[in-house]
């Protein structure tokens, strides 16, 4: 019993300590954004890496999800004689859930891992200490530009993913399953409006914050050389993915309260 309690106590302590560290990093980031000089060149470099570098991933994720979801929904709706609803349902799901969550998970894998590995390698090769020795706060140079680039990129990437998802769904429903285009469009516009797109892009802002804070924290706390970088990178992807899924639940509840699904 005492072993269990000690294990539980240790777990709670680690949990509190981890979230405390994330809160401190968030505080430093806020200071950097409002009180320090923004390195726009570095923001630009990160924008290219995050925004431009994620294009194929985002397009394939959006399009594949939209197409597959349309196919699955079509089979069931066809049995019920509701074929024309496919577009509206897929678009709604893409805007509110599938687009933001799947895109964020893909970005957590690619961008989160890259950030943790880059910063972690800088940490173990003393480049972070070199930055500090030159009077530069690591959060100002390493975290703030990545955060800003993520803030600008993620909503747009999610918007792009949604657009390709809806496009691929149309291709499947209208092109492959011969759903009449006029009915398809009618249901699409009845069920989805710009609020649903804003809903998804707003989620993207929160996911962008989660990815940057958790991945950069992993990188900045790496120890024990190459093994530590490997562990930190794996942990970054795991923690950010879990946090995105959990945050999605609460965000969906909150945002559904603010922006409920429009009545048709």
């Amino acid at each position: 019993m005492s072993t269990f309690l000690s294990w539980l106590g240790g777990l709670v302590l680690r949990f509190v300590s981890y979230f405390g560290a994330l809160a401190v990093l968030t505080g430093e980031l806020t200071y950097s954004l409002f009180r320090s000089r923004i390195r726009w060149a570095e923001v630009g470099r990160q924008l290219v890496s995050i925004g431009f570098g994620s294009q194929i991933q985002v397009i394939v994720t959006g399009a594949a999800t939209g197409a597959v979801f349309a196919a699955q929904v079509y089979y069931k709706f066809n049995q019920l004689g509701l074929d024309s609803l496919v577009g509206g349902i897929v678009a709604l799901a893409m805007c509110r859930e599938l687009g933001p969550v799947l895109t964020a998970l893909m970005l957590a894998g690619r961008i989160g891992a890259t950030m943790a590995a880059e910063i972690g390698t800088m940490k173990v090769t003393e480049q972070v200490d070199a930055l500090r020795s030159l009077g530069v706060h690591p959060v100002d140079y390493l975290v703030a530009p990545r955060f800003l680039a993520m803030l600008f990129s993620v909503p747009l990437l999610i918007g792009e993913s949604i657009r390709f998802g809806i496009g691929a769904a149309r291709l499947m429903a209208v092109g492959v399953y011969n759903v009449p285009e006029a009915f398809y469009n009618d249901q699409l516009y009845k069920n989805v409006d710009h609020i649903d797109v804003i809903f998804g892009m707003t989620k993207g802002l929160a996911y962008g914050y989660i990815i940057v804070i958790m991945a950069c924290h992993q990188g900045l706390t790496v120890r024990q050389g190459a093994v530590g970088v490997g562990r930190g990178t794996t942990a970054a992807v795991f923690y950010t993915s879990m946090a995105i899924l959990i945050a999605n639940f609460f965000l969906s509840l909150l945002l559904n309260y603010i922006w409920p699904i429009a009545a048709t």
Partner: peptide, 23 residues
């Protein structure tokens, strides 16, 4: 603190063991 140390550190240059150049 870390931010107050910035100006102090600029008075001293440091050559790290492996150079620590930004790669």
């Amino acid at each position: 603190n870390e931010r107050q140390l910035g100006p102090h550190r600029r008075k001293i240059g440091m050559l790290f063991q492996d150079g620590a150049l930004f790669d």
